[in-house]
Design a protein around this nucleic acid. Structure first.
Lengths: 221, 221
DNA sequence: TTCCGTCTAGACATTTTTGTCCAATACTAT
DNA sequence: ATAGTATTGGACAAAAATGTCTAGACGGAA
C-alpha cells in the first residue's frame, strides 16, 4: 500500500544530522493514514506523526500548510485509492454470476486492490464532517450502482438486481464493523453460500470452492 | 432515552446564580453520551460538556474523578442500556418465524428499547481501546447466540440457525454503517423480504406488512 | 568551491484541554 | 434563623497541540 516503508527511528536521541534521513511528503501522508485507520481522525496529530517519522514537528509545515491541509490530502488520497477499484471489478466480464460475485469479493479482500480499513476509517470520519460525508455518499452510490449493473448484466430485473446489490454491500459493511474479533473468513465461508443462493438455488459446491479459495489464501498471509 | 432533558442555557451570561439550575451527574453523563454518539470518543471533552450544560467546567470534578472516570461510566451506561434488550426480545414467544424476526427488528428500530447510535459509537470506540473491545466482543457473541437460539426454536438445525443469525446481525450492522444518507427504511422494506425468505420461500405479503408497519411508524416520528 | 534552493531543529507564541484549590453560594434539616 | 453539607465559580497551574520564525545543515548545479 505504501510506496515507501514507514520510518521508525528507534533511537530518538539528539540526531546529529549525519546519516540524515530524508522524509518526504508521502511519508507524512503514509503515517497519517496509518493513524487515521487505527485511531480515528481525531488522533491524527502533527507531533505524533513527526515522532513516528523520527523528525521534528516543525518540518511538517514545509509540506503542508496546516493540519487541515493534511486532512484534505488524506481525503484525496482515499478517493484515489478506493473509488475506481470496485466499479472496475464489477464491470469485468464474467461467465457466471458466481464468477461475477467472486470479482466483487476480490475488491474487498485483496489488500493490494482496496484498503478496507481506510475505507471504514473515512466512513467513521464522515460522521463528524459534512464535507467528508458528501464524498463518501457519492462513493457509496457509485459502488451500489456498479454492483446493481453487474446483476442486471446477468439477467436479473432492475428491482431484483438492486435488492441483491444492497444485500451484498451491506453485508460487506457489517462484516467489517464487527471484524477483528473472530476470524472473518470462517463466517464468510459459512454465510456467502446462502447469499449467493438467496434466490433459493444453492450454488454448486465446486463453484463455491473456487469463489472462496482466493479469500482464504489472502486471509492466511 | 434520557431521564432528564439535556440542558442548554441559551444565554450564557455571567449567570447570577438566582434561579440556579442544578446539574446532576446524570446530566453530565447524558451530554457526554450525546457527544460520544455524534462526534466520537475523542471529542468527549470536559469543557465542551460544561458549556452545553451552561455550567462551569470545574464542577465536573465533583461528580467524576477525571475524564477517564467519565469514560468508564459511559461504558457501563452503554452496557446497562444495550446488553440485555436483544437477548430478551429474541427469547420472546412467537408463533411464526416471521413474528420472531419481527421481535428481533423491534430491538434495533425502537429507540425506546435500544440506542443504535450509541451502540455504533461504542463499537467505533472499541477500535482504539482494548478494554472496550473486550466488552463489545462479549456483547456481540451473546447477541448472536440469542438470535441463533431463536432460529433453533423455530426448527432450524444448529448450522442453519447460525448462518441466519449472522446474516441478520451483519446486515443490521451494515445498515447502520451506511445509514443517514438516504432513508434507511426504504431499503429495509426492499431487502428484508428476501432476507426473511432466504430459504427460497418468500414470505406472504400480509406477514411482511405486519412486520414492517412498526418500523415505518417509528421512522416517521 | 561556492551558491542556492530544499529541508530540518529549536526557540517562541498561542490555544485548547485537563486537573487542583478554595472561597462562596444554594439547599436541607433542625 | 442557623448550621452544615452539597454544589459551583473563578483563579491558578500544567500539559498537549498547533502554528511561526529563523538559523543552519544538506545536496546538487554553476
Amino acid at each position: 500500500m505504501a510506496e515507501r516503508p514507514i520510518l521508525h527511528r528507534d533511537d530518538p536521541q539528539k540526531a546529529p544530522l549525519v546519516g540524515h534521513v530524508k522524509v518526504t511528503r508521502e511519508d507524512w501522508l503514509n503515517v497519517a493514514r496509518d493513524i487515521l485507520v487505527s485511531d480515528g481522525v481525531a488522533e491524527v496529530k502533527v507531533l505524533a506523526i513527526g515522532e513516528r517519522l523520527g523528525v521534528s514537528r516543525s518540518s511538517f509545515y514545509w509540506y503542508f500548510k496546516s493540519r487541515k491541509d493534511l486532512l484534505n490530502a488524506l481525503l484525496d488520497d482515499w478517493e484515489g485509492r478506493n473509488t475506481a477499484v470496485i466499479e472496475a471489478h464489477c464491470a469485468l466480464d464474467a461467465e457466471t454470476i458466481t464468477e461475477a460475485v467472486c470479482n466483487f469479493f476480490r475488491c474487498f479482500f485483496d489488500p493490494e486492490l482496496f484498503d478496507q480499513g481506510l475505507d471504514f476509517a473515512v466512513r467513521e470520519w464522515s460522521r463528524r464532517d459534512g464535507k467528508v460525508r458528501k464524498r463518501i455518499d457519492l462513493a457509496d452510490s457509485a459502488r451500489i450502482s456498479a454492483i446493481t449493473a453487474m446483476f442486471e448484466r446477468h439477467g436479473f430485473t432492475q428491482y431484483e438486481a438492486d435488492v441483491r446489490a444492497r444485500i451484498l454491500y451491506f453485508m460487506q459493511l457489517g462484516y467489517h464493523a464487527l471484524d477483528q474479533a473472530e476470524p472473518l473468513r470462517d463466517r464468510l465461508a459459512r454465510t456467502e453460500g446462502y447469499l449467493l443462493g438467496f434466490t433459493g438455488q444453492p450454488p454448486r459446491q465446486s463453484e463455491l470452492e473456487a469463489l472462496f479459495a482466493f479469500a482464504r489464501e489472502k486471509a492466511r498471509r
